[in-house]
Design a protein around this nucleic acid. Sequence first.
RNA 1: GCUGGUGUAGCUCAGCGGUAGAGCAGCGGUUUUGUAAACCGCCGGUCGCAGGUUCAAAUCCUGUCACCAGCUCCA
Length: 610
Amino acid sequence: MPTAESAVSNSQSDAMQLPRTSESPSLKKIRHTASHVMAMAVQRLFPKAQVTIGPWTEYGFYYDFENPEPFTEQDLKAIKKEMAKLIKQKLPVIREEVSREEAQQRIHKINEPYKLEILEDIEEDPITIYHLGEQWWDLCAGPHVENTGDLNPKAVDLESVAGAYWRGDENRAQLQRIYGTAWETPEQLAEYKRRKEEALKRDHRKLGKELGLFIFSDEVGSGLPLWTPKGTILRSTLEEFLKQEQLKRSYQPVVTPHIARVDLFKTSGHWQKYQEDMFPLMSEDEQAAAAEQGFVLKPMNCPFHIQIYKNELRSYRDLPIRMAEFGTVYRYEQSGELGGLTRVRGFTVDDSHLFVTPEQLDEEFLSVVDLILSVFSSLQLKNFKARLSFRDPAEADKYLGSEEAWNKAEGAIRRAVDKLGINYFEGIGEAAFYGPKLDFIFQDALEREWQLGTVQVDYNLPERFDLEYVDEDGSRKRPVMIHRAPFGSLERLIGILIEEYVGDFPLWLAPVQARFLPVSDAQLGFAKQVAMQMQAQGIRAEVDTSGERLGKQIRNAEKQKIPVMAVVGAQEVEGNSLSIRTRASGELGSMPTAEVSEKMKDAIANYANF
RNA sequence: GCUGGUGUAGCUCAGCGGUAGAGCAGCGGUUUUGUAAACCGCCGGUCGCAGGUUCAAAUCCUGUCACCAGCUCCA
């Protein structure tokens, strides 16, 4: 029986193209039609079901239904069967143009109010309707295949059911969304499923467990990762790396507590605009609770750094001041939003707040972006997008501050990206409540998007905290703040890194850099001795003391993705050498122990591999 | 928070009304081993938790907690 691994190495399947819908006119038609066939099948089996929207996605399609009972996975099977029947009937797909009034009348006739709402949003006239045979139709822009018989029922599958809010609004009805996928051939479908399973193997939750990097404990609580010794090496190596980069750029480390009086967050505006994301108030007694007094866990570090700024009268000569802290924050994320390391309730931000004069803003902003891009480059992270995260004017109550402050801040960000010439897109409504951001977005193994690095321009908190500096002429001026975090959070970064590297960390980050594998117990002493010498030089080396045969030791080291394996047999002890095998290049043969140490130190210092 | 799904040994999973199983890991022994799995034995589970139905519950029902996919929301 072929294993999953042999399927991967099958060159034929590797070569198979699986275009995204947006890249393939024929898949666009197939998936459009498949979604209509699904909707028709659903309405035949569940006559009370109402059809709402049903677009294609990059790898399939979905349709949202209103139905008295939620669909179960059992229902999915029945729906799939019904779809096969409809495909077999070779129903012609007929496009019809009707007037707006005609469309309204027809919708009234079948009593589907959601469609009326959809109709209102369609701007172009006439309205296009697509029929499947004579019994079913929906509003649709198309395009479609000509006949349901053009679909291959063996290349269509229904994947999952999920609740989805009508119009994406959690205050409106929750509909039942059915996700499906459709391809030209059954082979493509099989390949698609295989690749989904492959992606699961890269999942940081799975790799994190296998490599022993972090755990979650039900007793500690959800969204609260615990870092094992190996994971902690990863974290602290990353921290140290960034600390060094920041020292080179005149950042000043600070340390602040995890809780503060709620008043601090009332001044900052968090209590007013961000309370939903905060853990509840800790009050000493009921009286204090009633007066809304007590302490809260910090959801952000900025108000603390602001206090340090305010502790002294600052001169224009002092600016810019760059305060940096790996600050652990706590946010009460809704339970359904938690997942692995990419969305947690307690996480450490590689935070910094820059207090600058208005004149310094542009230059400082650019230097921050430069730092962020250089950090990504050192981590070999290439696949990211830049997003200008601006406020949504339609939801003005979500944000603090004046129109003028926001316009100035957005202007600064625009000037910066234009000057840098980086590609970006705009995310309206993605701003922080106190200011707009430039965010760097990455994808995980399942192609979900996550924000890591961020730079934010803030005119509001300086105002709320009445921050000042004394300018050349002796007058008091208001500084501007830049909030920035190249990693975003250590947790999310590590989640993304694990998936990006598929667990194969570059040497400088690998929790265990070298493992000594004695061929027999006779070499154990020598192995321990050389490992200790390496440790003394700062190399993370360990010895396999299991007493297993060499083959098994290698297998275990490979599974743990340890970059350098040093085999020690009688010959090596004799010649004070090590037989080196690396994950990257396999067997490299014997070399003197001193040479191995030097090469490793060299590679580590240069973020390179052995 | 909402919808659907899943919780059985440290890990991966089988069992799905009638006395809790396998492989790996761990431990002990034999073997002293040369580049991805030596052999034998042993240990290991309030079947997520709490109620209920039943002569009998891992298995059916209810609640709850956690995880997974999606929605909403975000570093």
